[in-house]
């Protein structure tokens, strides 16, 4: 399995750490309430198909990457720096 790091290029999966769904980028406000926090920390769309998930190029440049990927075929469709996405979202 190969993942493309936006900084380093295509690398072997061994160089990456996988965390989970990219929902992790959308951290609720501290006072968002129990349901919002439960959804953020626990609940998952868990699609059989295209998903966006978070990987870190841990053995490379340390970049956290949002990878768009198909969970059925393992096709990797896109990857982008999480920091860029976060900045665009106005974090």
């Amino acid at each position: 399995m190969r993942i493309t790091c936006p900084i380093c290029g295509e690398r072997d999966r061994r160089e990456f750490y996988y965390q989970g769904a990219a929902i992790a980028l959308a951290r609720p406000a501290p006072d968002a309430g129990e349901a919002a926090w439960d959804a953020y920390v626990h609940l998952r769309d868990n699609p059989a198909g295209v998903t966006r998930d978070l990987w870190q190029h841990e053995s490379g440049c340390s970049a956290w990457i949002v990878v768009t990927r198909d969970t059925v075929t393992h096709e990797v469709l896109d990857s982008a720096l999480a920091a860029d996405i976060g900045m665009e979202a106005g974090a």
Binding site: M1, R13, R14, Y18, N46, T71, T73, H74
Partner: peptide
């Protein structure tokens, strides 16, 4: 394998 998957197959690492 540590990544979300429905493929029922894995990779070499």
């Amino acid at each position: 394998d540590f990544y979300a998957s429905y493929a029922a197959r894995g990779n070499l690492p």
